[in-house]
Amino acid sequence: MTTVQSPPPGAPSRRPGEIVIEALIVLAGASTVIIVALIFIFLLREGINTFLDIPLRQLFGQRWYPIEGYYGLLPLLVGTALVTVGAVIIAVPLGIVAAIYLGEIAPTWLREILKPLIEILAGIPSIVLGFLGWVALAPIIQNLGAPTGLTAFTGSLLLAYMSLPTIISISEDALYAVPKEYRDGSLAIGATQWQTIWRVVLPAARSGLVIAVMLGIGRVIGETMAVLLVTGNAANIPAFGPGMFFSPVRTMTATIAAEMGEVAQGSLHYNVLFGIGLILFLITFTVNWLAARLVGVNGARRSRGGLL
């Protein structure tokens, strides 16, 4: 009985190098999980004292004044919330409508010009937009009658544009994923293009649009440099009402950026800044986790083409 011939000399079927590289590949894949875990561990290690040493009542108090030992996070949470809500109010309609324009209305040649423009917008560093907000936008807003140009609204406006690339591209994917038959079917029974978009396309793309908005929010909450420059950095809670958007505020991210350089390592203030980072981490983790749950982590994966 003969056996399957052995491979030619010099070519064992799996060289040792191959086993090494495949081990590295698995390790690299797993490294992403390890990194997330490490980030969490380091934030926890440096930030845990925030929650152990400061009574909760004080931690969620209204006064952020570290020099005198007041670590009330409420002004920072409110600041982040105001800026985020403002940005979402501006960015969501703009982003989704722009996606509709790109996907359903714009002629092809124009789309080819506009899509790179979105990538360019995404490529503008936040410090550059913040700088422009500081030197050019804030004076304009002040001239409109606000007591100062550095307000929550100024930050919202900048952040809205910074989150537009995220919202537009994911929304456009969602619209694009709606089968062409839906549109054809609607148009065939005499609906106008707008009726088709409103009654058929948007509802069908709903879950994708929700994800676009959520990831846009995630982007807004985490933004640092632009808000540091244009929101005025006043750690107080503005009086409730429409005017609050036009008051100076201070966000969680800006607080870390502005104060970390001046604190002593290991001091309570230092721990609290890490604690704020931990809160931010948990917020964005939750937002992304929810978004991924909605679509399924594998949902975004496109299947491989090919005939074999």
């Binding site: 009985m1 056996t3 011939q5 005939l307």
Partner: peptide, 29 residues
């Protein structure tokens, strides 16, 4: 079996097997 030995056998080198038994596909590739 191929030449009398099980192609799913433990000692079989599948890459060498594919060199001995070669495939041409339906679509020119």
């Amino acid at each position: 079996t191929f030449n009398g030995s099980d192609i799913f056998g433990r000692a079989v080198d599948v890459y060498n097997l594919r060199r001995r038994i070669s495939m041409v596909f339906a679509i020119p590739t």
